[in-house]
């Protein structure tokens, strides 16, 4: 069975029921609209409005979901020596996200958050974190075009306050 999703720019996407269910938000909406996998009439006569996602972003989300629709629910690995729970981005996901410029990554992250697709959300947040990891402050500032509004005194204070951190 298929489900119709309608984006903010009125583009209709017809997706497999399993893909629609990957989004907690869509899942809840289908439930509220009494749309059921076994009731074709309910699926045909209804569409799910997604006013916070544009068609360009939706297409990327669906591409990701298509790839991951048969995935088993993943346990987050505790593989960091510091004990933080980290998310491992698969090779396919790295490839999928590598050409997205930062603005598009942000859009995708926002959409994954709104649609409640945790796997995609984790992939993007970890990808951005990986872009930052190991870089010096000035490199990060240049990469993300970060405007520094701190005074010299404030910068000095930050350096003083963070001097305790050894790595």
């Amino acid at each position: 069975p298929n489900v119709k999703l309608v984006t903010s720019d009125n583009e209709e996407f017809v997706v497999d029921f399993r893909i629609a269910k990957m989004s907690v938000t869509v899942s809840r909406l289908m439930e509220a609209m009494n749309m059921s996998e076994t009731d074709d009439a309910s699926l045909l006569s209804n569409s799910i409005p997604l006013p916070n996602v544009t068609k360009a972003v939706m297409a990327r989300v669906i591409e990701w979901c298509e790839k991951h629709k048969n995935d088993e629910p993943k346990e987050e690995k505790e593989n960091d020596k510091r004990g933080r729970t980290t998310h491992v981005v698969s090779d396919w996901d790295k490839e999928f996200l590598k050409n997205d410029e930062f603005g598009r990554l942000c859009q995708l992250m926002g959409a994954a958050n709104y649609l409640e697709i945790k796997g995609l959300f984790n992939d993007i947040s970890q990808t951005i974190a990986n872009m930052i990891h190991g870089k010096k402050s000035d490199e990060i500032a240049e990469m993300f075009n970060i405007h520094c509004d701190l005074t010299e005194a404030e910068k000095k204070e930050i350096r003083k306050k963070t001097a305790w951190c050894e790595d």
């Binding site: 960091d80 510091r82 933080r84 980290t86 998310h87 942000c106 992250m109 926002g110 958050n113 959300f121 947040s125 970890q126 951005i128 974190a129 930052i132 990891h133 190991g134 870089k135 010096k136 402050s137 990060i140 500032a141 970060i146 405007h147 520094c148 509004d149 701190l150 404030e154 930050i158 963070t162 951190c165 790595d167």
Partner: peptide, 24 residues
């Protein structure tokens, strides 16, 4: 969302991200 990204970073990287008032 920035906060989530930051939570994926080790302390040294987090501190390197204190580049302006908002991020700090």
């Amino acid at each position: 969302l920035i906060s989530v990204v930051i939570s994926n970073l080790p302390p040294k990287d987090r501190l390197n991200l204190r580049l302006n008032k908002r991020l700090q």
